[in-house]
Design a protein around this nucleic acid. Structure first.
Length: 304
DNA sequence: TGAATTGTTATCGT
DNA sequence: AACGATAACAATTC
């Protein structure tokens, strides 16, 4: 579940604790999640200092002092937990397992020992999370699309991204190679705020609808970050965004804008939540061709 | 019991 | 070629 806001909050919590620290050891109990392999990653990052911790899309990026990077993707159920080590005064020899560290985690797959005596734990019940070491960050993240908060992504740029293809709006927004960071929750929330049905085609939008979508995306993501992310189950602790959902997970409940019932749909194999009154299903203007001409005629206004 | 869930990628069909 | 659909991954909840 962690999407851009949750990952951003993780990064902000992690950065002050990790920057300046050296990694003294790394181990994993779930080899398939570590690339190129636990042993090679252990060798590559042992002794390295963490110079920065940033986010790219839903990836947590550790910048190491040799120019290499460690990417962590939480996927569905991953979480990073901090385990404070014993104080230097009475430090005991460290065992090979993380069990001697007090922690509520039940599915620790990998862990990092730091020169501070602390330990960073990667807990991931569903084993989908990934830890990747790379000496070429650009290559490792090359498949990712634009960051939602990139200054280059303004209304006009979003318009170009949408109109250069003909795709259903929801699968397009979920496509990390186009815009990187949105997941199922924030996509549903953004589409609701923009008053757009998830089945709308990306080349069917008017200029004002594109601007509405642009504004909505920024708003839901900023809101999510401000509230510390959304914890909808045991996966992501902390955060209160789940109390502010307008449609996600509110099937059958009244729309907060018009009081009609929120409906659950399936779009692109994903659970989808909409208010059909606030997000009217797309008409058939595509077949008539009218919508297309109208959009083209207005595109000058969007550029201005 | 089995369907649904989540993010991502690989693969298949149109 | 560009798209959507499907399956796979794994565990957990409903």
């Amino acid at each position: 579940m962690p999407e851009l806001p949750e990952v951003e909050c993780v990064v902000r919590r992690l950065r002050p604790r990790l920057v300046g620290r050296r990694i003294v050891d790394f181990q994993s109990r779930w080899a398939p999640s570590v690339s190129p392999s636990p042993a090679r990653v252990r060798r590559a990052i042992g002794g390295r200092r963490v110079d920065d911790v940033t986010r790219r899309a839903k990836y947590i990026v550790l910048h190491l002092d040799d120019g290499a990077h460690l990417l962590i993707h939480l996927r569905m159920s991953g979480r990073l937990e901090w385990s404070a080590g014993p104080s230097s005064a009475n430090r005991a020899p460290r065992g090979p397992k993380p069990d001697d560290h007090a922690c509520a985690c039940r599915h620790v797959r990998s862990w990092w020992d730091l020169d501070s005596g602390d330990r960073l734990l990667f807990d991931d019940s569903r084993k989908f999370g990934r830890v990747m070491h790379t000496r070429d960050l650009a290559a490792a993240t090359g498949h990712l699309g634009v960051e939602p908060f990139d200054r280059a992504l303004d209304g006009a740029a979003l318009g170009r991204l949408l109109r250069s293809r003909s795709r259903l709006l929801k699968p397009l927004l979920l496509d990390q190679s186009v815009i990187a960071g949105l997941g199922n929750i924030y996509t549903d929330e953004a589409l609701f705020l923009a008053g757009l049905h998830p089945l709308t085609h990306s080349d069917e939008l008017s200029d004002s609808q594109i601007m509405d979508l642009y504004t909505a995306i920024g708003r839901v993501l900023r809101d999510g970050i401000r509230r510390g992310g959304a914890s909808i189950d045991w996966v992501y602790p902390g955060g209160s965004m789940q109390h502010s959902f307008r449609v996600y997970g509110r099937t059958g409940q009244p729309c907060k804008r018009c009081r009609s019932r929120v409906v659950a749909l399936r779009v692109g194999q994903r659970g989808t939540h909409v208010c059909l009154k606030c997000q009217p299903p797309p008409g058939r203007t595509r077949l008539a061709g009218a919508g297309h001409r109208r959009v083209r005629a207005n595109s000058a206004a969007l550029r201005a």
